[in-house]
Computed example of a mutant assay.
Amino acid sequence: MTATATMSPPAIAAYVAETIDPIFATIDAWRDALEAGLSRHPEPTAALLDPIVSALVHPALEGPGLITGAGFVATPGYLADAQWHLAWWLAGDGARGAAGVRRLAAVSDPDSEDFRDYTGLEWWRVPERTGTRHLTGPYVDYVCTDDYTVTITTPVRAAGRMVGIVGADAYAARLELELRQVIRGTGAPCAVVNASGRVVTATESRREPGSILRFDGLSDALAPLREADPGVVAAVLPGGQSVLACGDTSLALVIG
């Protein structure tokens, strides 16, 4: 793939989907394994759950790839021995002086001044509302890495209710490098945005990752991506820009 290669917008949208889909598939497999395990334990505990989550996510964090953090976050009150609980691990980063996979040191005491109610964050709030997976970001992840991050999460259900979310983080810079080369193939200004219109990567430097793309009609065009059953997203905005969904990733191309 070269920067000068010309590709049709549908081909570029398909490439974006193919880049993200392996992460989705990995997370879906984790969800299925957790739901199967939790179905056998009507009163699960953090002590029971944590080794299961650790074994699931470690392979993805130890090898090459886009995933830099992963784990499970419990619905408050679900676990018998932990009112609030994050079972989340981070990939090692030699440049930061940390080698190997390490567990996130999360604050779970609501009385601590460092405690943060994660149920108000987008990566929790949207899957809880829609019942399906969601891509949040890029945003500065003050909980885990203090870096621009993309987080993909999906609900975990047991006994007919959501008992938490399972998900993964990817550094926005890595994802941007992965996608920027191919979107240049449109031969026109182009951006990959999430369902909120937040830029993941773009051909123009003024459209920085994490910024909101503001075009008339864009929010309405992206609205189906914010629902559990998005259907097909393909639109032309009043200003002439075209919008095309990247499969079912909740990302879209905005060209023009």
Rank of each mutant, 00 (worst) to 15 (best):
R184A: 14
G131L: 04
A191D: 10
A191C: 10
A168N: 03
L177V: 11
A188Q: 15
V163P: 07
D169P: 03
V192A: 02
G160Q: 11
A170N: 02
A172D: 01
G131M: 07
D114L: 13
R133P: 03
M162V: 14
I152R: 07
E128W: 14
T186Y: 05
T132A: 13
R157Y: 10
G137T: 07
A168C: 09
S112K: 00
V163L: 05
I152M: 12
E122V: 13
I152N: 02
M162Y: 04
T132C: 01
A158S: 15
Y142E: 12
P189E: 10
E122F: 00
V182R: 13
G185V: 04
L175E: 04
D169F: 04
W123I: 04
D146G: 07
V166E: 04
L135Y: 08
V192W: 01
Y118D: 10
D147T: 11
Y139M: 01
T149C: 04
R129I: 09
D146Q: 13
R161Q: 15
E128D: 14
I183E: 01
V182G: 03
R174N: 14
R161T: 15
L179H: 08
M162A: 10
E122H: 03
A168D: 02
V166C: 13
E178V: 03
D117P: 02
E176D: 15
Y148F: 10
Y142I: 07
R125C: 02
V140R: 13
T186N: 10
T130H: 03
R161M: 12
T136F: 04
V163N: 09
G187K: 03
P127S: 07
L179K: 08
D114A: 14
E113V: 15
W124P: 07
D111I: 00
T153S: 14
V182Q: 13
R180H: 14
T154V: 14
V126Y: 03
G137S: 02
V192C: 01
T149M: 04
W124Y: 15
A188C: 03
T154G: 08
D117A: 09
T119L: 08
G137F: 04
M162L: 13
T136I: 00
E178T: 15
T151G: 03
V140L: 12
W123E: 00
W124D: 05
D146M: 07
P189Q: 07
V143H: 01
G185L: 02
S112R: 00
G120E: 10
T130M: 06
R133C: 08
P127H: 08
A173M: 01
R116V: 15
G131F: 05
V192F: 02
A158W: 06
R174V: 00
A158T: 13
T145Q: 04
A173Y: 06
R161A: 15
I183H: 04
P127M: 05
A188K: 14
P189N: 06
T136E: 10
T136V: 01
T119D: 03
W123Q: 01
R116E: 14
A170Y: 00
R174G: 13
G131Q: 08
I165H: 06
G131D: 09
Q181A: 15
G167D: 04
V143F: 05
R161L: 06
T149D: 01
T132L: 05
G120Y: 01
V143W: 01
L175F: 06
A188S: 15
Y148M: 11
T132R: 09
R116D: 12
V156T: 06
T154S: 12
